[in-house]
Design a protein around this nucleic acid. Sequence first.
DNA 1: TTTTTGGTTCAGGATTTTATGAACTAACAA
DNA 2: TTGTTAGTTCATAAAATCCTGAACCAAAAA
Lengths: 153, 153
Amino acid sequence: MKLTDRKREIIERVGVAYEKKGLQPVVGRIMGLLLVVEPAEATFEEIQEELQVSKSAVSTALTFLQAKETVEYTTKPGERKRYFRLRMRDWKSELKKDFDEVLNMESLINEIIELKENKETDFCCRLSEMKDFFGFMRKELPLLLKKFEASRK
Amino acid sequence: MKLTDRKREIIERVGVAYEKKGLQPVVGRIMGLLLVVEPAEATFEEIQEELQVSKSAVSTALTFLQAKETVEYTTKPGERKRYFRLRMRDWKSELKKDFDEVLNMESLINEIIELKENKETDFCCRLSEMKDFFGFMRKELPLLLKKFEASRK
DNA sequence: TTTTTGGTTCAGGATTTTATGAACTAACAA
DNA sequence: TTGTTAGTTCATAAAATCCTGAACCAAAAA
């Protein structure tokens, strides 16, 4: 495999970014690796070798990423090895899942407001403002996505 | 203190939501507690009692939340106890920090693209598209915030 | 001066998360 | 039928995280 130090540094940075999102270290490193390698795919063995982790760690991480529909593999005729790669096609649907967290926040805040006996406090007004903002975002984010798509045609 | 089961349930849900964001369990529970109590403040002792954790856990979590400028305290004349509460005033600047992560993503993706020898691949085009999207969001999100503010006057 | 209140600090223990290694499977090859 | 390749599975080891308890401190009260 033999990657440059620069690429290795990026793998780590991508790894850390994914760790912060709650994914496990090896999962994040694999994402990084698949982002920087050229061509954009790697075999099980290459991943294991480059990241210096056990087969089981690679297997578990790849199973997870495939379940999440983030990674897929192809095979080449006459070879039994799998070539793993990122499913870049649907980064937009990934994003929509992130957007949906807004919806969760909105309903959680709303449940908190509903419990309040006194809804006239400054605190409660702020909460309402936040709730409204999340509602606003829930409506506006899909529009923004459309606007982006329109801007590229 | 004596909270209803409903409020305790919400504290846990808020706690889990914050854990997912990478904060420690006790930090998240304190956020939940300060969101549901009425009036919206609690003493060190009340927090400790309600969450059933040690003084040190409460102290560490509160120190962290104050450093993050998410929590502050007031005192009452003649009392030495601190009354901790959420700094709800600036939830918008909190939000802006979240928005800024978009910027990080943009530059990370850009660094990856710059390393690519062949920029004509399908993979690279998708990456560019993502980069453009993050650039687009970086410009649009602040506008969206303004639009929201305008809609409330 | 001593005690009480309201915390803070930190070493170490418990728990959780993450990675390993050994045993296993399935498919193909010799 | 035995060996090899390309992984998977799972018990447990290792590491990281989180919390506790004991010692401590500063300010006010007794």
